[in-house]
Write a protein that binds this DNA or RNA. Structure first.
Lengths: 157, 157
DNA sequence: TATTGTTATACTCTATAACTATA
DNA sequence: TATAGTTATAGAGTATAACAATA
């Protein structure tokens, strides 16, 4: 039924490769959307969300960043990042400092407590996914790691 | 700095494999969260979201389902699925029918318009991601396809 | 005047609680 | 009673618009 519809509708040139990209697009988005919804249920009640953790991890591993740098990197708008940073700041995990060269800028720095938190929390978080990952074969894990690298690259392009 | 912290904190036994799973967990979640945020920005203004499309695709390709079956499959609660189905129904893409065996159940069926929509929209949606996928090598696409399959499997376990 | 960030407000997506109808 | 689904309401996460401070 679907192939017939596709045939009717495919007015422009398509190669089998196009079709496979379309399929990949749909399958891939649907699979990660379902995973995100499942993870949401698993981590209900957590104090920090993925964005909080991603920002903190970046500050710990890569060093201080301005608010705009953070919002660009994470693909959110500055007001969203400002609120995210408020939470981290109120928890004592990051500090706002000012740029001596440019008074408009706010530079975010991880506190020692923030560094400690990242090291400590990597293991505990997303326990459900951790368990699932442990059940995979080494090759399957390598596939996911390779996929994560590809996703990061295209997201930032 | 981080390795020292880890060493202090790692009270329980961990193997190198554990660490790599932790890293994979963090990297993977962060990469797909950033991708999701980027996709949100790219598809602003769209009439349907990922859940609408995923549900419609399932009904078209796999046949009629009850509301509970849909909410289980997509990992949302029944009220969320009910609202999602309302939108698809109001757009004429699915129909609610009743189960002749059990009057409590609602069976969702894709309309001909819904079938047509799925075939027609696969190509157009997420144009930004489609473009990125076209720029990948065949092997990179195979990696993502394999990752999507693994994700789907573990999400539904 | 342009840029960086914040505050106020609103929208999207999903959840929980309360309810209706049927088994 | 227990189950399937809906309605009403709330919360998390993100956005846009308006504003303040600095360049």
């Amino acid at each position: 039924m679907i192939p017939v519809e596709r045939q009717e509708l495919d007015q422009r040139e398509t190669t089998p490769l196009d079709t496979s990209v379309d399929e990949l697009n749909a399958n891939f988005i649907e699979s990660i959307a379902r995973l995100k919804r499942r993870l949401r249920a698993e981590r209900a009640g957590d104090e920090f969300n993925d964005l909080h953790r991603s920002v903190l991890t970046l500050l710990v591993s890569e060093g201080p960043r301005t608010l705009s740098q953070l919002s660009d990197h994470e693909h959110v708008k500055p007001p969203s990042m400002s609120e995210t940073v408020n939470v981290l700041e109120q928890s004592g995990l990051v500090e706002r400092t000012s740029d001596p060269q440019d008074g408009r800028k706010v530079i975010l720095v991880a506190t020692p407590h923030g560094v400690h938190f990242v090291a400590e929390s990597r293991r505990r978080r997303h326990e459900w996914l951790n368990q699932r990952l442990h059940e995979l074969t080494g090759e399957e894990r390598r596939t996911l790691a390779a996929a994560a690298a590809i996703i990061s690259r295209i997201t930032d392009s």
